[in-house]
């Protein structure tokens, strides 16, 4: 083997899947991320961004695998072109967000702090998506509160696949809304189950990368900074918040808006 790389982390779902020997193909290479595809068309990632995720391996440096490279998984390693990428058992990262139990006051206080932070954040233009979200905010809160799957479907059909980026901004928002609900109280989880049903039928409307993230969210899995941020609630950790906000171009504020929607829908009503 010419080169051996050690992973900083690997998402538990990915590690579990790789327990069986698999073959993956490199289908995309960004500046700091590789996308690999398995036989079932499922996408996985190797990234140099230090933010773990359920379907990703975090590495200090990307292996020099080019598009089309076939990568074999053997035990706790991925191997191709003389490069072995391996992970220690301790590097396996739990993507499931811990449940939280917040009082109404804690929920409102967290929402208030989040709104303040978002108010000061630089939102990049998103080709009308923010406007759309502004229009849909109240109907979405109503639909979640009233357990109205028909209304939810009609709203989510407008959000999914909408907005700039490889993961459209509406998907980012929906992803974090799902994760916020699944990690919430009993009522939130009931709402989550309804929303999950709706989203499952809408994923074909978006890009494949985004489909992968939405599927992860439907299982209650989050990426590292979002998970840490949600688990710190009701304290709004500025460190974790800034890490989430800094994701992508419009993704960061969309994630935080998703959390805000998930926290505020029970009490968000037309004044």
């Amino acid at each position: 083997m010419n080169r051996v790389l050690q992973a900083d982390s690997i998402g538990e779902p990915f590690a579990n899947w790789l327990r069986t020997n698999r073959t993956l193909t490199v289908v995309a290479r960004y500046e700091r991320t590789l996308h690999l595809q398995s036989a079932g068309q499922q996408l996985w990632a190797i990234t140099a961004y230090p933010d773990p995720g359920p379907s990703r391996i975090v590495v200090p440096d990307l292996p020099a695998w080019s598009l089309g490279t076939r990568v074999e998984s053997i035990r706790q390693s991925l191997i191709a072109d003389g490069v072995q990428l391996y992970w220690q058992p301790a590097a396996v990262w739990d993507a499931q967000v811990r449940r939280r139990r917040l009082t109404l006051a804690e929920r409102q206080s967290a929402a208030c702090a989040l709104a303040q932070s978002l108010n000061d954040w630089h939102f990049r233009a998103a080709r009308g998506f923010w406007n759309l979200l502004g229009d849909l905010w109240q109907p979405l809160a109503d639909a979640l509160r009233q357990h109205d799957p028909r209304a939810l479907r009609s709203i989510c059909a407008r959000l999914i696949g909408c907005g700039p980026g490889l993961t459209p901004t509406g998907d980012d928002f929906t992803q974090s809304l799902l994760i916020t609900l699944v990690s919430g109280d009993k009522v939130d989880r009931a709402v989550f189950l309804e929303l999950k049903q709706v989203i499952a039928s809408l994923t074909p409307l978006t890009t494949r990368v985004s489909q992968m993230f939405l599927r992860e969210a439907c299982r209650g899995w989050a990426f590292g900074s979002l998970k840490a941020f949600l688990e710190a609630l009701p304290e709004v950790s500025l460190l974790y918040l800034s890490q989430v906000l800094d994701v992508g171009s419009t993704s960061g504020p969309a994630y935080v808006l998703g959390v805000l929607a998930g926290l505020s829908y029970p009490s968000f009503d037309t004044p």
Partner: peptide, 23 residues
């Protein structure tokens, strides 16, 4: 200060944030 309007200058989103901020 590298200032930008809140919520990207989007009036509706701004109003929503303002409501929650002032709760």
């Amino acid at each position: 200060v590298d200032w930008r309007p809140p919520a990207g200058g989007n009036e509706k989103l701004m109003a929503i944030l303002a409501r929650m901020k002032n709760q």
